[in-house]
Design a binder for these strands. Structure first.
Lengths: 366, 366
DNA sequence: TGAACAAACCGTAACGGTTCAGAACACGGT
DNA sequence: ACCGTGTTCTGAACCGTTACGGTTTGTTCA
């Protein structure tokens, strides 16, 4: 394979044209509108191009002229490991990538220097639009994206003004899950949740912290839990909530440990993600607790490993979520009204939830 | 939040300058070289910009002039679901994303229309370089990337001419693993592997197909297995190899089923990826085979779920792999010589490998 | 024979910036 | 009055391409 030899300077459309004795327009047409010139000339152009090591029109210059970058930006501020390690997140990524691939446009991961206020990367990204996924509500990068004169779609975040949005109904789904747990008879429950804010707090989360959470999804799920349990007569301030900044299975385990150490009488552990739940499962095993006989554990998202582990969880169509976001963004432009897509969720009862062992009889049957 | 109102036309640096009665240079300096103008004027520029809804210099135009796209391209031809669903692949992605984030540049996933020869996207991507990961050797997209006058780093693929490369020593690692299995006394083994070529073959793979595999990693691992087992007196044509085009846990399970149905006396299943091994594990359970008592199963990659399942596997530092590729690419430019980085691997013996039940005694001890 | 028309090619003007070599001016020192 | 030294701002060139509206040439047909 012969690498293109770099002459004094890379060949350009103009130098090619000069070499051939034709106009730049013609060379351009050779690449973009083959019907605008004779096949022979086109062949000659392409041959000369190869000889000069010209790989076709410069993408950036083309973008400038055509006003199309040919890529959409993905804002994933901070916490990259979440985006790549949680199948629920990679599912969204995959769906989005699929939508982009269908449309033949690139997908640019825009760096959001963690904790950094530096939004330069957002302003400098050559993209035709943004998908904003899982960033805290008050993130400066989001703000910067909105300034740019390109369409934006937000995923798993609160509706914003005239923007497109796609996401599941977290509240409703969580209510359904919580009702399942309540229905089994659990009254002493604990909660494990993901990071609520940009400041690290690997500890119990105060009520204030819960309600002030900057991450919409977590806030919504916690609020739904609160509502459901209080409706069932369980005062929320009696429910321990442990937060983890990072989001690996081990974090779920340590969170479960922390919670169970302090509240050993808890009969159910509700986790706001499957990853955390898998960790809790491991910790339960370590403590010799049988699941679900001694402890009920539930997750959220419906990732593959959770299914394999028989976890009771809420499944959401993550791939579709990403695809929908992509289509929405790529189909924007002419549209005026903003669109909101709410995705369906499904409670999947597995083998990790059952009535508490010492269940006091409650009024509605099993 | 007030969306920028689109006037007749988006504001530009020139229109801003006109409005202010200063030169374009000055406006440009206001953004790029604050020290080049008086603070008052700069303030005035920025204020007027905000008033006119000008979000700063257009990224594409800037890129054209500065000859920096501010992004690197990632070539992931076809099989997106592999890239996003296998933690070994997402690990590389994450590492690469981290390296890019550190450098403040974007990471663009370049679409490679599956099975499609259309390389337009590769030619039109506004990037400063390419990372090529896990594409078949003869992929036209790779070819197209090499034509572009930008540096390229290849990952997990055979060294190519003057290009940078990063990857583990698949052969050596596989030999180590195979020796472990051989050392345990296994002589009747079967192999499950990932797709070997772009044409689908969910079936046994002929020797020819194995050696002709277009995916370097798979080819290298199979070759290493062959070498090791033949050295141990096991003729390779007696070893069944089952291939799967897709790469989910279920595919591993079905592959194991297919293999065990036809070769029930096999005592060890060597899988070229952990995902496949996890599927094999599930299938073994379904058949009532105890692992490792009745059947030894090994994987490759060392993903988290494999560790949790106690799988015997080869761990490779996927995150480092991605990081290394990113650094290599971003550090290129001035360098002339190409660099090759070989990553360390580590055999991790878990609870899924043991001597065969009816092990004939062999000459070297346990 | 010449009008009409299609095919093939071309010139110019953007697209929206950055850069570099100065110009204009103010200021302190001699 | 002159010089040197900053500071602040400007003019023009340039980055590599495509859009737009031509012009030229050749063919067809009344």
């Amino acid at each position: 394979m012969n690498r293109p030899m770099r002459s004094r300077r890379q060949a350009t459309l103009a130098s090619l044209a000069a070499e051939l004795g034709v106009s730049r327009t013609t060379v351009s047409n050779a690449y973009n509108r083959p019907d605008q010139l004779s096949p022979e000339l086109r062949k000659r152009v392409l041959e000369t191009a190869k000889r000069l090591g010209y790989a076709g029109p410069d993408p950036v210059a083309r973008s400038l002229r055509t006003r199309k970058a040919g890529a959409v930006g993905l804002l994933l501020t901070e916490n990259l490991s979440y985006a790549f390690r949680d199948p629920a997140a990679t599912g969204v990524l995959e769906g989005l990538a699929l939508a982009c691939e269908d449309a033949g446009v690139g997908l640019t991961l825009v760096p959001g220097s963690p904790g950094n206020e530096d939004v330069a990367a957002v302003q400098r990204a050559g993209v035709d639009g943004f998908v904003v996924y899982s960033v805290p509500d008050d993130d400066p990068h989001l703000e910067a994206a909105l300034q740019r004169p390109v369409p934006t779609v937000i995923v798993d975040q609160p509706q914003l003004d005239g923007l497109d949005r796609v996401g599941p109904d977290d509240e409703a789904a969580t209510v359904e899950l919580a009702n399942h747990v309540v229905g089994l008879g659990h009254r002493q429950v604990g909660v494990l949740c993901m990071r609520l804010s940009s400041d690290r707090n690997d500890d119990f989360a105060s009520l204030y912290r819960q309600q002030d959470a900057h991450y919409h999804v977590q806030r919504a799920r916690l609020a739904a839990l609160q509502r459901t349990f209080e409706a069932a007569g369980v005062p929320w301030d009696s429910v321990p909530v442990v937060e983890r900044f990072d989001h690996h299975v081990d974090d779920g385990a340590s969170a479960a440990r922390q919670l169970l150490d302090k509240h050993p009488r808890v009969t159910a552990l509700i986790c706001t993600s499957d990853i955390l739940a898998l960790g809790a499962l491991a910790e339960a095993g370590r403590r010799g607790l049988r699941v679900p006989a001694d402890l009920t554990i539930t997750g959220f998202d419906g990732i593959g490993e959770a299914t394999r582990a028989g976890l009771t969880t809420v499944h959401q169509p993550v791939l579709e979520k990403g695809k929908a976001a992509g289509k929405l963004l790529l189909g924007a432009g002419d549209r005026v009204a903003s669109k909101v897509i709410t995705l369906p969720t499904e409670l999947r009862v597995g083998t990790t939830s059952a009535p508490p062992r010492t269940a006091e009889q409650h009024w509605f049957g099993p």
